[in-house]
């Protein structure tokens, strides 16, 4: 995954970058399976690696697929910020429980209740599903609102292409109109 991320940062052909992003998501999904999060891996492989790659390819088709190299001034200041933030974050991890520790506080707040009682209270063997749909259903409702808002936003942004523009002509606005149903469909998966 680190190699894929480095390649994403270095390559200037946006088509290759988008494909690498898909690979990056897929590697992430594999990592989720290794760490027992099978439901998350499903979602990541379908939505992260699938739908968002399609959305990005659609955007590339509507815009351009070449990138200019980043100016040196930007690169240096970005490196300084990133190294500083990274060191602070790694310093923060020193206080964290070690990987896979069953006594970590995160595993003994509500997780015990979910694992012990959910089959009696909800009746589903998959604990992730019963937490998602029952204990935290307001969360899921909120998520649905977010997706609806995003879809409405995409339609509002791309549906307005008839407004006066500076550099492009009617042809581009028609392309913009064509893309909008595809985008909203992707957003609601």
């Amino acid at each position: 995954m680190v190699i894929a991320a480095i390649a994403i940062a270095r390559i200037h052909d946006l088509f290759a970058v988008v494909m690498l992003t898909g690979i990056f998501s897929l590697l992430g999904a594999a990592a989720y399976v290794v760490m027992d999060a099978v439901d998350v891996a499903f979602t990541e492989a379908a939505v992260g690696a699938g739908a968002s790659t399609v959305l990005m390819l659609g955007t590339l088709a509507l815009t351009t697929s070449k990138e200019r190299p980043a100016p040196a001034k930007n690169v240096i200041s970005a490196l300084i910020v990133v190294v500083f933030t990274g060191v602070v974050l790694i310093y923060g991890t020193l206080d964290m429980p070690i990987y896979g520790d069953p006594m970590a506080p995160i595993h003994h707040h509500v997780a015990d209740h979910y694992l012990g009682k959910s089959s009696a209270e909800v009746g589903l063997p998959n604990v992730v599903t019963s937490v998602l749909a029952s204990y935290r259903s307001y969360d899921t409702l909120g998520e649905t609102f977010v997706i609806f808002t995003a879809a409405a936003g995409v339609l509002a942004i791309l549906g307005q292409s008839r407004l006066p523009r500076r550099h492009h002509d009617q042809e581009d606005s028609e392309k913009g109109m064509v893309s909008s149903p595809e985008k909203s469909k992707g957003a609601s998966t």
């Binding site: 992260g48 968002s52 959305l55 997706i147 936003g153 995409v154 909008s180 992707g186 957003a187 998966t189």
Partner: peptide, 15 residues
């Protein structure tokens, strides 16, 4: 939840 919301925001950004 976050993955799905993330794709929604990505779609908005790309739009």
């Amino acid at each position: 939840t976050a993955i799905v919301v993330g794709v929604a925001t990505t779609a908005l950004g790309l739009a």
